[in-house]
Design a protein around this nucleic acid. Structure first.
Lengths: 226, 226
DNA sequence: GTTGCGCTTCGTACTAAGTACGCCTAGCGT
DNA sequence: ACGCTAGGCGTACTTAGTACGAAGCGCAAC
């Protein structure tokens, strides 16, 4: 079949996962079909099955690839700075692959990248001097917040600015605006003002949680006093 | 066809959505097919299309049904108590319908129940005396945390106790345990101890965020001073 | 150099699931 | 009584995942 004479790009699971991520970025996750992916890679559907075990496995690989893009907390920074940088990185990655957010949950199999990530995160919390129970809490709380935030961002119809007004219009039209006074007030007097950005709440929340952890650690360190 | 003589249960979108939720609870979301749902309702696939516009719409309805189960903040409680109760309720609902968490994100169309919820939540924050910008932050941060937490809970292979040990075993076996000292320490010395529960971090995180909001409000109220 | 083995590659085709089309029936207002 | 409309459903088309087995190609031992 006059196939580019011998030079096979050698399909590998990684290469396939990479192409799948690119395809999802470009056309959306629902456009990611085995056939489309095969086309993209210049091969045929069934060929892919010799490298990945099925679509579920492929999704697992994609998820781990997403985790690989996230910058783990650096060891050369102050623990708090390291954690903030890491959380911002996580958010940025998730925002750049919005389709991945729902995926991250449905997959339970932790890949090596995820574990590496967990480890670095725990190490940073440890450097912060948090006792073990607080490390556990801190990690759970931080990640809940970070992923939850990214999730909301990915879902939001609009992030602010023009689109926002339209959405607000639609909602107000579809339902009785008078029934939702706070919602209206928030939208008109704050969200639709120039300069508003949903994303600005991210750093605020992050700061609150870190402050809370530090305070809790101090409280724990103090032997016993009201 | 000897059809129970005249007594039609009168299919409605609500009834269908309810049956769909029940089916997803029982057999998992992947078992929710139009055909299975029709069987469950004692009808045929195409009949459903006279009441819901397609599977996407059905999922929207299901999501709004989930929101309807969540207890909105009560007006007769102290604002902080009301918010805590509401957040716990949200978490409880999501945990009881774990399949719904990934769904909540992929659907962008806000249903009436969701709006009602937002409204009540904002009202509670308002009662707390938070200025508008802090209300916006507070809501974004709280919901990010609450949904993020539920999301992690829904994903977690095990919540603690027996299952945990197995999972840890698997991970340790699959990868090099020595490469993840913090992870090992956390698992062995904390997570696998009796009494550990991932869920306990929920109230802790909630408290930190609320404390942070109150502190920020106080700071905002103070004219200007370091 | 030839042959054989195994890793890829892929053509074919089956299955599951969403859903368009159009017929059929029952009830109801005129 | 009649036809109109809404709801129910049989049929069949389409998309997508994937099982099965044959065809192609490189390498190692003969």
């Amino acid at each position: 079949m006059a196939d580019q004479a011998g030079r096979r790009p050698r399909l590998t699971p990684e290469r396939i996962a990479q192409a799948a991520v690119a395809l999802a970025d470009r056309d959306g996750i629902e456009a990611l079909t085995i056939r489309a992916l095969a086309d993209e890679l210049g091969t045929k559907p069934m060929t892919l099955y010799h490298h990945v075990d099925g679509k579920e496995r492929l999704l697992d690989l994609m998820v781990d690839r997403i985790f690989a893009e996230m910058e783990a907390p650096r060891e050369d920074l102050d623990w708090r700075e390291a954690i903030i940088a890491r959380c911002r990185s996580v958010r940025a990655v998730l925002v750049s692959h919005p389709w991945s957010v729902p995926l991250l949950e449905s997959r339970t199999a932790p890949g090596p990248e995820l574990l590496r990530h967990h480890e670095a995160m725990l190490a940073a919390l440890d450097r912060g001097g948090l006792p073990l129970p607080l490390m556990a809490h801190g990690y759970a709380i931080l990640d809940s917040f970070v992923f939850g935030f990214a999730l909301e961002e990915a879902t939001l119809p609009a992030q602010g600015g023009e689109g926002m007004a339209e959405v607000a219009q639609d909602i107000a039209a579809a339902f009785d605006a008078d029934a939702y006074p706070q919602l209206v007030r928030l939208t008109v007097d704050h969200v639709m003002k120039p300069g508003y950005s949903f994303g600005s709440s991210f750093d605020v929340g992050l700061g609150m949680i870190l402050d809370g952890l530090v305070a809790a650690a101090q409280r724990a360190a103090t032997p016993a006093s009201a």
